Amino acid sequence: MESKGPSLYAQAGTSLDMSRSLEEDSLVDGPLISADALHSAIRRQFQTVPTPCHAGLLSLLHVVYVVLSVCVAVLCVLKFGQEEVCVNILSNVRGDSVILFGKVCLWVLVLLFTGCAQHHHSRARSRGYLRFYREMQGLKHLPLTVHSAGNVLLLVVLAAQLSPTVHIYMLLTILGIELLVALPCLLYYTVKVMQFNRERAAPDVSQEEHSHTFSVTGLPTETGFREGSSLEEVVEKQADLIEYLKQHNTLLSKRLLNLTAQH
């Protein structure tokens, strides 16, 4: 009885090995999916960042606001003619108050733009574009920082209680400096995002994988801790790799399902 037990287990193990090998052979004999096909599938799913339109509209509104503020200051505050027109349009509201109300509205628009840009850039980061997210991290917040600093300067001018003429000149100076700083930032941001949308590049991990595939040394993608790299950078790289692998597996499953349906 004891001699039969091992033989039965051996036969069962042999049958399991044979069935397992047959299953592996059937998978090997099936159509293979090339890496180029997966990369092309990922490239077709590229989603653009729509914020250049918002940045362009915000830049236009900023320029229009500054031009209108200069007109109101010259015609209604400094009173270089057209006083009746100002009274008919503004009624009993002071010209400098109108300029300040417009500044508050512009700051709210900049705040909404910053939130919208943060949302779309976070989505791009979740799709694997961590390098682009880091590059634009400070740039997309810069217009809000400039406008907030301008608001602080305006509060200082209001608290100083200067003469009306000096007060309006200081106000226009702050608005002009703010325009000269914020507008180039928005234009540079627009150019960078449009360049990103035009390139339609693959996710960062996919690019690293492709570069290491054709490199001479054939080193693996760096996802662990290395000397000189910060812990935050390593964690972000690992998160990016996990997100990319999830997307890679999803695309692979879809391709396998399509091939199975064709057969």
Results as ranks from 00 to 15, higher is better:
Lys4Asp: 15
Lys4Gln: 15
Gly5Trp: 11
Ser7Pro: 03
Ser7His: 15
Ala12Lys: 06
Glu23Ile: 12
Glu24Trp: 11
Ala35Tyr: 01
His39Tyr: 10
His39Ala: 10
His39Trp: 07
Arg43Gln: 11
Phe46Trp: 02
Cys53His: 09
Ala55Met: 04
Leu58Asp: 00
Leu58Ile: 02
Leu75Gly: 01
Phe80Lys: 11
Gly81Ile: 03
Gly81Ala: 08
Glu84Phe: 09
Arg94Glu: 14
Asp96Lys: 05
Gly102Val: 06
Leu106Phe: 02
His120Phe: 09
His120Lys: 07
Ser122Met: 09
Arg134Val: 11
Thr145Val: 12
Ala149Cys: 08
Gly150Ser: 08
Val157Met: 04
Leu158Lys: 14
Leu162Phe: 06
Pro164Asn: 09
Thr173Phe: 12
Leu179Asn: 03
Leu183Ser: 03
Glu208Cys: 08
Ser211Met: 07
Ser211Lys: 10
Thr213Phe: 12
Phe214Gln: 12
Ser215Thr: 11
Thr223Gly: 08
Gly228Phe: 02
Ser230Glu: 14
Leu231Glu: 15
Val235Asp: 13
Val235Asn: 09
Gln238Leu: 15
Ala239Ser: 13
Ile242Ser: 10
Gln247Lys: 07
Gln247Leu: 10
Lys254Asn: 14
Leu256Gln: 13
Leu257Pro: 04
Leu257Phe: 10
Thr260Asp: 13
Thr260Glu: 14
